[in-house]
């Protein structure tokens, strides 16, 4: 099977990989780059566990071909904390106990961060609809939604 060479940017760093054309960006991240923070819950775009940012847009990496990453910028959960400092959402998820098993958590965090970047004052309903593509089976979403709303509040008051 011939492979294609792809040059891309991942979490701000240049990255290169070889992949088969049929491989998804999620396959590449997990199997070729050992960035296993993005999870495969379904492989069909229904669960959001593989959420990443592609050129600043929230996408399911299971529905992107690896070759499509050529020349583009990918951000994953591994790039969310700055060194030892957690992103405020990561911190709030811990404080609110917004995770139980934690397998959906990376996807939720990436998706929630994308929300707060376009809307720093979302209503509960806006949070719920924005995150409707991220499935969580443990929490009933209650604490996740609270953590996101609380983060937004803190981010707003830090700016004020």
């Amino acid at each position: 099977m011939t492979k294609t060479a792809v040059s891309t940017t991942i979490n701000g760093d240049a990255a290169e990989f070889l992949c088969e054309t049929g491989e998804t960006l999620l396959d590449v991240l997990r199997d070729r780059l050992d960035l296993t923070g993005s999870k495969e819950g379904c492989g069909t775009g229904d669960c959001g566990a593989c959420s990443v940012m592609l050129d600043g847009r929230l996408v399911c990496s299971c529905l992107v071909l690896g070759v499509e990453a050529q020349g583009r910028a990918v951000e994953t959960i591994e790039g969310m904390a700055e060194g030892e400092t957690l992103h405020p959402l990561q911190q709030k998820f811990l404080e609110h106990a917004a995770l139980q098993c934690g397998v959906c958590t990376p996807g939720f965090l990436v998706a929630a961060k994308a929300l707060l970047e376009v809307n720093d004052d979302p209503s509960e309903s806006q949070v719920r609809y924005w995150l409707a593509g991220n499935l969580c089976r443990c929490t009933g979403y209650d604490k996740i939604v609270r953590a996101v709303l609380d983060t937004a509040k803190d981010m707003r008051s830090a700016r004020a």
Partner: peptide, 8 residues
Amino acid sequence: GSTQIQGR
């Protein structure tokens, strides 16, 4: 689809 799907 979801927000993620909307992006594509």
